[in-house]
Design a protein around this nucleic acid. Sequence first.
DNA 1: TTGACATTGGACACTGTTGTCTGATTTATT
DNA 2: AATAAATCAGACAACAGTGTCCAATGTCAA
Lengths: 193, 193
Amino acid sequence: MTASPPKRRRADAERNIASITDAALEALASDPDASMAEIARRAGVVRATIYMHFPTRESLLDAVMEKATAQVARAIREAEPEVGEPVEALQRVIRATWKELSQFHGVLAINIGRLPAKELRRRHLPMTTQFIPLLERGQADGAFRSDVSAEWLIAVIRAIVHLASTELQAGRLSQADVERTMLTTALSAVGSQ
Amino acid sequence: MTASPPKRRRADAERNIASITDAALEALASDPDASMAEIARRAGVVRATIYMHFPTRESLLDAVMEKATAQVARAIREAEPEVGEPVEALQRVIRATWKELSQFHGVLAINIGRLPAKELRRRHLPMTTQFIPLLERGQADGAFRSDVSAEWLIAVIRAIVHLASTELQAGRLSQADVERTMLTTALSAVGSQ
DNA sequence: TTGACATTGGACACTGTTGTCTGATTTATT
DNA sequence: AATAAATCAGACAACAGTGTCCAATGTCAA
């Protein structure tokens, strides 16, 4: 999935591609409209170099998004959503992905408005699909409310995690409180009682 | 607060100002980066006319934001947050403001990134201050959870309302379901049980 | 009706961004 | 050491947006 059959690039090219996507990730996190020049500057590379590897700005954004979602998806997977009590599992998954997601907080939001809703949903699939079985399992055994769809619950959880990230960044929530607050709120919103 | 002492404008000027802010509201809702030209086109006015009344793009945005927040604030006030049982009152307030807020859904989000967090908070005051007493009242009598701040609860409610608006717009939630879903989720997130 | 106010339509300079190109230079690979 | 790949430095055209200006025209108010 990384670069096996298509073409063999030189080692420094490979390195630069990594630098560029990393820099883009950073830059876009603080400013969703960061220019190619700004990204190049951060990557320690000349602007034209970016165009060596990414034909357009759009294509760079696509690559960055895919990298971010893949990284979050991996973190979710490693938290083993299918193991144990639904409530415990959800708690574990949220906790494990929270730091990951908070990095990309702004970055993943770029797609909103940039892509049609359908496409956006498709690209979030690597993350969302992993939640579905967990939530449905919880709904089946009465741990989570089942008067709304699992998709809605996912959206609510995501919103709360993003919110926690925002509030932390804004200083309205302390490092010490944020995790507990986020978790209890998410569980309370999703819980059945 | 509208235009009492500062200076008397001609009637057509007054009318155009209204057209412009309305057009800006519309345009910015669908595209947060809508240009002055696009706004002028919608207002049925030439671009230079906008600059007659708003010296810069920024100042127009400010005016639009203030208009939007004022409108939402009024709707909240009319729902009488201070009357009756906290749970009932909150339900009433959310329901009453929901349609209002869903119009401005995207518009109010423009400020994020445009303004420093502190300033942003200040401008949201007309809306948020009205929630505080209601939430604190509910926290005091055990209706709402009190292990987190009232400010956090406000943020959570706002996030859920915005989310509902997004999901409705994306067709992931039906007109019939959206209000119930939003309300039950918000109350469940805020409730103490 | 008249004079002041306001809008029009068009032009203008300025800035920032994207994407392309080129020739010189550096770097990895064999 | 030789060759191919990649980067650099800088220029360029094209475009879109902001803010300003002006002369002509339209509109309100007394």
